[in-house]
Computed example of a mutant assay.
Amino acid sequence: MSVASHPAPQTKLNSLGFAKPESETRVVVAMSGGVDSSVVAAMLAEEGYDVIGVTLQLYDHGAALAKSGACCAGIDIHDARRVAEEMGFPHYVLDYENIFKDAVIDEFADSYLGGATPVPCIRCNERVKFKDLLATARDLDADCMATGHYIQRMMGAEGPELHSAADANRDQSYFLFSTTPEQLEYLRFPLGHLPSKDATRALAEKYGLKVANKPDSQDICFVPNGDYAAVIEKLRPGAAEPGEIVDMNGNVLGEHTGVIHYTIGQRRGLGIGGLADPLYVVKLDVDNKRVVVGPKEALATRIVPLAEINWLGDEPFEATPERRIAVRVRSTRAPREAILRSTGPTTGEVELLTPEEGVSPGQACVFYDPEGSRIFGGGWIVKG
């Protein structure tokens, strides 16, 4: 007599993708003290996960206490600790001040002095949060690390993929393009599927979190009120040396008090009024201490050279010399159609089908699926 075979029952995965009970799944939550990461921690704790909260102190604690409107400030450490106490999970504050200065702040200053427009938040994710903090999470025997970023991790045919957030207004993919495939295996982003920030705040209310109505951070944490030049002058005394403002033919139009006070695409505050047509900063000639200005059309860029490319596609980056993709060259701009060409393992160039204004070295160029939500990585814009 034959015995009918029955398929083995499928192993049910928990919400973080592990085939074991929530109580046996340890997750380290990177807590900035804001509403987003607080909701992630509270949500996972309520679901029964073994949650450990970790907050990074990234710069001088005394200065942090005096400053609001930025992540990782002193009041934020207090808020993160309070959420952990209310939800009943352990919380640790790690002093990463020296690591942060070496990996993020110093490069920010040097990049700015070199005439670039850096994005330190990307470097912080890449070199601190998703490197040193992630290593700490592994040391704590965590199965994964969760953050409050608005981005989605989805499983594809070749493994986890990075996708834009469901809410385009909150999407943080521009700041996370350098996340590697290995990091993506370990990371979780529980808020990426939410339809709006209001939904996040509603969850904070549900969990009774006092940070439910806390304002979002606006500034770069170590740049008070967005005054980049003041920070550079403090970090690199004597950096603001005066020089000439010239047109594209080299004609002197005025003087400036330091190249660090200007950015590509800037129109206001040039100090060269009285001209018939508006002029914009089109180039920063650091070696000669010159700010070069020109008409708006001079800002249009079609070819964008890239370095330090992080590729998140299924096939190797160099396997296809030319790809049709969409790219974002500023965090505030929507993706635009482009052609990506590889010129080496981690170098390439993007040809914008419609020229963009104000493309600046030091910014990121992030790659998107032109017909979907997937992110294929990106690279750093360099001087051509």
Rank of each mutant, 00 (worst) to 15 (best):
A4S: 10
H6L: 14
A8P: 02
P9Y: 07
L13N: 01
A19E: 15
E22D: 09
S23L: 07
V29F: 09
G33F: 03
D36A: 01
S38K: 01
A42M: 06
M43D: 14
G48C: 07
G48M: 11
V54Q: 03
L58P: 15
L58C: 02
D60T: 04
A63Q: 15
A66R: 13
A66M: 04
A66H: 05
K67H: 06
G74P: 15
H78F: 04
R82I: 09
R82G: 04
V83D: 06
Y92I: 13
L94H: 00
D95G: 04
E97S: 06
E97D: 00
F100E: 02
F100N: 05
I105G: 00
E107I: 09
A109P: 05
D110L: 14
D110T: 12
D110V: 12
G114Q: 14
A116L: 13
P118A: 12
C121T: 02
C121M: 00
N125M: 03
E126M: 05
K129I: 08
L133W: 06
L133N: 02
L133G: 12
L133T: 02
L133M: 15
L134H: 06
A135M: 08
T136R: 09
A137L: 09
A137F: 07
C144W: 06
A146Y: 06
G159R: 07
G159C: 06
P160F: 01
E161K: 08
S164K: 05
A166H: 12
N169R: 11
N169S: 15
D171P: 08
S178L: 01
T179W: 00
P181V: 00
Q183S: 13
L184Q: 09
E185K: 10
Y186V: 14
F189I: 00
L191Y: 09
L194H: 10
K197I: 05
K197H: 07
L203Q: 00
K206M: 06
K210N: 11
A212M: 00
K214C: 08
S217C: 14
I220R: 06
C221Q: 08
G226C: 07
D227L: 02
Y228D: 15
I232K: 15
G238I: 03
E241R: 15
E244S: 11
I245N: 12
I245D: 11
M248E: 08
N249F: 10
N251A: 10
H256M: 08
G258D: 08
Y262L: 04
I264V: 14
G265K: 02
R268G: 01
G269V: 05
L270R: 00
D277F: 08
L279R: 13
K283L: 05
R290C: 01
V292E: 01
G294C: 05
A298F: 04
A300C: 02
I303E: 15
E308H: 02
E308L: 00
I309D: 03
W311Y: 11
L312I: 02
G313R: 05
D314Y: 01
T320F: 02
E322L: 12
V327D: 10
S331Y: 12
T332Y: 10
R333Q: 14
L340R: 13
S342Y: 07
G344H: 09
V350M: 14
E351Q: 15
T354V: 13
E357G: 03
G358M: 11
G358W: 05
G362W: 07
Q363A: 01
C365H: 09
V366I: 11
D369Y: 09
P370Y: 08
E371G: 04
E371I: 05
S373Q: 13
V382W: 09
V382N: 07
K383M: 08
